[in-house]
Design a protein around this nucleic acid. Structure first.
Lengths: 212, 212
DNA sequence: GTCTATAATCGGATAGAC
DNA sequence: GTCTATCCGATTATAGAC
């Protein structure tokens, strides 16, 4: 509160405005889905004239695709944290931890994904059938190897991954419900870290053999 | 293909039409959310003239509220399957099983709930802060009692319920993703039953003490 | 390069015919 | 009781001024 120059929240550079539109679009798409989102609301949150949005992104769908691409990129980053060379306990804990951190750091991205799936994944469908399917197949092979080696209990790896995805993404997608159940306040960092530790512990206990 | 009379799918009674509108609305709200849903699409799926919809339900919001009420009722039914008088293993298994069956039997209801939470729960917010909060508080007490008795490992009950909700509802909300990863086909009954058994087993192993 | 004014369409809701 | 015709505001997108 001293000699800091007052920085206008409204961006003045082209890059800054594109970024502002992009972030505004993310929040609106996450909240209302593709169909429910309006360019007017996006422009309002980006603090630009409504019509001007079309100068930076030609159509609402182009903007949505740009936003979606970005979400997929982030997903792939988290996916790479599953290290097949590590032992199962370490690899699974690291992956769950990365997914939890991702849900915490970028809940909006997770919600865009959820909303896209809810309407039948018309845009990311290809990604699901190719990249995501390849990823889970290769990870299933690793999990099966660990099961054969007696390092994990017998199970269907795919349903285990569904549990991990469901549980971690829940902390982003259902944040509103958690807030309502938490006296109207978002989870504190301490609460979140406790939740993360418990999710890792419960899922590990659930798949590691008893005597380890 | 014998002497069966051809039954028109379009209902002719008032009750039948209300039911048709209601079901059509459920599917459209689940797919596009409240904002993205259009009365035109609902009327189309209900096979009635668009404007006629307003004769049965005065406004889009009134229709949405009717649909939402119904979802809450179904949720309360599943909640009642958590039997505090049983032993933890039984009570938890029964509750998870009931939630899985619910996701399978009524995925649309689950998706309406998810979509409502995504936009900040403006309609069911009250329910979350009252009925749902009461429910989870009373169940937390039971879980804590079981932990003290050494029947469950130490943990925060709330995060365990979040895991159950996340995992079970995932089978409804992310069905589109599962279909894409399953060669374009929905999970068969056999696959679903296997998934259900595994979810119950993993979560139970995750919270039951080792030596039981 | 940016914004104002506006076209074209869509969507929720109603009036009034049948 | 049911449906047709239609109003009016909202929404996407563009044309053209500045």
């Amino acid at each position: 509160m001293a000699s800091e120059p007052i920085r206008l929240s409204r961006s003045t550079t082209r890059e800054g405005r594109e970024k502002a539109i992009f972030e505004a679009a993310r929040s609106v798409f996450a909240e209302f889905g593709f169909k429910g989102a309006t360019t007017a609301e996006i422009a309002k949150r980006a603090e630009i004239p409504k019509a001007n949005l079309h100068y930076y992104f030609p159509t609402k769908e182009a903007l949505y695709r740009a936003v979606t691409e970005d979400v997929l990129t982030a997903w792939l980053e988290a996916a790479s944290s599953f290290d097949e060379s590590a032992d199962p306990q370490e690899a699974i804990a690291a992956y769950i931890g990365a997914k939890m951190d991702m849900a915490r750091a970028d809940p909006i991205g997770s919600r865009i994904w959820a909303s896209e799936i809810l309407r039948g994944a018309p845009v990311i469908g290809d990604f699901l059938e190719t990249t995501l399917l390849d990823w889970i197949k290769s990870r299933e092979t690793i999990i099966r190897r660990w099961i054969k080696a007696g390092k994990l209990v017998p199970m269907e790896p795919r349903y285990f991954f569904y549990m991990i995805w469901a549980t971690t993404q829940h902390y982003a997608d259902f944040e509103g419900q958690m807030v309502a159940l938490n006296g109207g306040k978002p989870l504190s960092n301490a609460q979140f870290e406790k939740a993360k530790a418990q999710v890792i512990e419960t899922l590990l206990r659930g798949v590691l053999p008893a005597e380890t």
